[in-house]
């Protein structure tokens, strides 16, 4: 395997990590007011994310940084081309992170309702837009080669909103909502756990319909690679398994399989893309793992760092999940209506 392919694979793995982890974060955020019917429930939901959401988001930062380091042309064309969608994602991530930290500082219902609204919206937007973005990457976008010889995006914001990419967006949205609901059923106790399980079945079926249409469109319209066909079949199988385990009340296995499905979705899209990284749909030169990559030396340096660091990161991040493995139930939240800043101590 060339270093170029290795880095394509590594970036795919980073996105897999990101979507598995922040995927359920988005789901929990979207469901905050749907499942959380009172303060104790809402704070339970937020507390399941508390220790881990920030570490989950780092997968995105590293995916971005790795793309910059290994495929600077891909990073430059993609980020400047998908300008407004990325901007909306950035706004959402800013608001979401602050909202988690500040929301329960005061007990005031107005204060909390506003932050809850912010959390729901700012989880919804990226869950939708990441699907839109990746579908466009796989489908190909209008490109042109500039006078300097750079491959630049040649379309506008609305070129990115086509039926295929919107279907992709709605699919990831429902996938993450379901993945989030399964996470909630695994991490909480009491009524919340039951409610989440039932919701996951319903949204899971919607996801299944969306995903099958999306995969068929991909297979018929874009690529006939055998690995993509295999990936699509595995997506369907693991998703059925996840919903079946959920139905049987085996939340742990259900979560394992919904994570696997998420991983397979990303892997399949990357396989559909390979060896391109940003193909064009207007006949202009596109970007692939060779013309978009860094020099051999940079790839070598980064490979050493990545091979050495990634296992260590997985180890300590995994340890965090182990430490916080216990379910949280709403009756463990003492005085849910009280904020730490409500009253003076002296």
């Amino acid at each position: 395997m060339t270093l170029n392919s290795f880095w394509f694979l590594l970036i795919a793995i980073l996105w897999i990590g990101y979507f598995i982890l922040e995927g359920f974060d988005f789901g929990v955020g979207i469901l905050l007011r749907v499942l959380g019917k009172n303060e104790a429930e809402r704070r339970t939901l937020l507390t399941t994310l508390g220790p881990i959401w920030d570490g989950n988001e780092v997968w995105l930062l590293v995916a971005g940084g790795a793309t910059f380091a290994a495929f600077p042309e891909w990073y430059a064309t993609l980020f400047s081309g998908f300008y407004l969608p990325l901007f909306l994602i950035l706004l959402s991530l800013i608001i979401r992170g602050v909202a988690f930290e500040y929301r329960s500082k005061y007990g005031s219902p107005t204060w909390r309702n506003r932050w809850d609204f912010a959390i729901s919206i700012s989880s919804f937007i990226p869950a939708l837009l990441w699907g839109v973005a990746f579908s466009n990457i796989v489908r190909g976008i209008p490109l042109h080669t500039s006078k300097l010889g750079n491959v630049e995006y040649a379309g506008g914001f609305f070129n990115l909103l086509n039926l295929y990419s919107l279907l992709g967006g709605v699919t990831t949205l429902f996938l993450f909502i379901t993945h989030g609901a399964i996470f909630i059923s695994l991490k909480t106790d009491g009524e919340l756990r039951i409610k989440a399980r039932f919701l996951a079945i319903r949204t899971g079926l919607v996801t299944a319909v969306l995903a099958v249409s999306y995969l068929l469109w991909t297979l018929i319209g874009l690529t006939h690679k055998s690995l993509v066909i295999l990936g699509s079949l595995l997506i369907v199988i693991t998703w059925i398994a996840s919903l079946a385990f959920n139905f049987l009340g085996k939340e742990g296995w259900s979560f394992v399989f919904s994570s696997l499905t998420t991983a397979l979705v990303v892997a399949t899209l990357f396989e559909a893309l390979y060896p391109n990284v940003l193909p064009s749909n207007n006949g202009s030169l596109g970007l692939n793992i060779f013309n978009a990559s860094s020099s051999h030396y940079t790839l070598k340096v980064m490979t050493i760092v990545a091979v050495f660091m990634t296992p260590i990161v997985l180890l300590y991040q995994g340890w965090t999940y182990w430490i916080f493995r216990k379910r949280i139930s709403p009756n463990q939240i003492s005085d849910p209506h009280k904020g730490v800043l409500d009253h003076l101590h002296q």
């Binding site: 940084g65 793309t67 910059f68 430059a76 980020f79 940079t298 340096v301 760092v305």
Partner: peptide, 27 residues
Amino acid sequence: FQFGMNWSTYSRFVGDIFGAPLAMEGL
């Protein structure tokens, strides 16, 4: 993100070098 969004010509010119410490910072 803004290096790629607003400064793509810079990113292309320096990415081979500048991207490395950024990725290392993440990892």
